[in-house]
Design a protein around this nucleic acid. Structure first.
Lengths: 188, 188
DNA sequence: CTTTATTTTGCAACTTGTTGCATAATGTGG
DNA sequence: CCACATTATGCAACAAGTTGCAAAATAAAG
């Protein structure tokens, strides 16, 4: 149950409307917890009904009208509770190693091309993180929040670095091997 | 939609019953795609109805009786199709960096202990992978399937290595800082 | 052979996440 | 001010994953 807490965090950093939140989930927050606008609107409704956030009082309420939310003390308390909670790392679910394993059984097919494509995507993401890190380092404020943010960013950088390195290894190991799609696995 | 293909792969490697599959998902396959026995039984039903697998003919069919499945040619074809498919990496969803970010806003609380706990879990997983790698390297057969398997294992090792390294960095950076729960973030 | 525990399969209800579309407000060009 | 795109919110149906429990076969104990 991380989505509500992701939203609480985002709203504490800055009160926002549903769409603003969606945008922020496409940038920084979503780097570790993605969410569609549907999920966000639904969750905002739940959080409001639960009394953890409230609509910032503005003008007339209506559909299609911007609604900004802020976190109530109850919401902040709940977030503190969640931060201190004990929760096991969730079992990882990634289709790519899975497909590689399947390829070991039915033949490599065109998978190397796909690996190259993924390598490019991860490299691009890595570049984006590096750009953010460079900009952040320039500020050099050093509050606790800044240091924590930097750690989170580092996780992103290290993770993408891992992917690029692993994909390079995999591509190197596989290229020139399997070749055509649908063929039987050769003996060596 | 990776679960059916994970099951097809597992069944191609070795025809199994639902419970056997569940066990294998707790070991090797589940390292990259976990699944509960419920998911597996349900999916086996679907796959059978779709004509991709069939029950291995044995004796009388009944509830609570072991049923083993094998993959039909249609199933193999479908798996080949999936391996050659183009599919973007799924947006990553990990609660831990998220909690760290939240901690940046509401205070570190007891999070460092939690980081240590996760470090231990990841280190244990890493050890397990290393053990498997050592045993696998001993065989040294070198078929395509072996090499692919080794790559998958390497992904697991590198991933856990990343986690352990990152957690060490995070613990080092944070310990002695936040301390008590619920306190305001200090300026530096 | 009956009771009890374990193994194996499965149903049902629930939560979380995805997809497609609908609707209202707002902005823009004619 | 009317048509049209864009912004912003939201419903509904679905798909995937989780949790709790039940029930049939089998094994073990008395």
């Amino acid at each position: 149950m991380s989505l509500p807490h992701a939203i609480l965090t985002a709203l504490l950093e800055k009160p926002s409307s549903g769409l603003e939140l969606t945008r922020r989930f496409d940038r920084s927050i979503g780097y570790f917890w993605s969410a569609t606008h549907q999920q966000i609107y639904r969750e905002l409704g739940k959080l409001e009904k639960a009394g953890l956030i409230r609509e910032l009082p503005s003008d007339t309420p209506a559909r299609g009208k911007r609604k900004a939310y802020e976190v109530l003390p109850t919401g902040r308390t709940e977030l503190e509770r969640w931060v201190g909670e004990s929760e096991d790392p969730r079992p990882l679910r990634d289709p790519l190693p899975l497909r590689l394993r399947a390829a070991g059984v039915v033949g490599i097919g065109g998978l190397v091309g796909e690996l190259r494509r993924h390598r490019a995507l991860h490299a691009a993401q890595l570049e984006e993180y590096r750009g953010i890190e460079k900009r952040d380092a320039a500020r050099e404020r050093g509050t606790e929040q800044d240091r924590v943010q930097r750690l989170v960013l580092r996780a992103g950088i290290d993770m993408e670095t891992f992917w690029v390195a692993w994909l390079d290894e995999a591509i190197g190991e596989l290229e020139g091997l399997g070749g055509a799609a649908g063929e039987r696995r050769p003996r060596a």
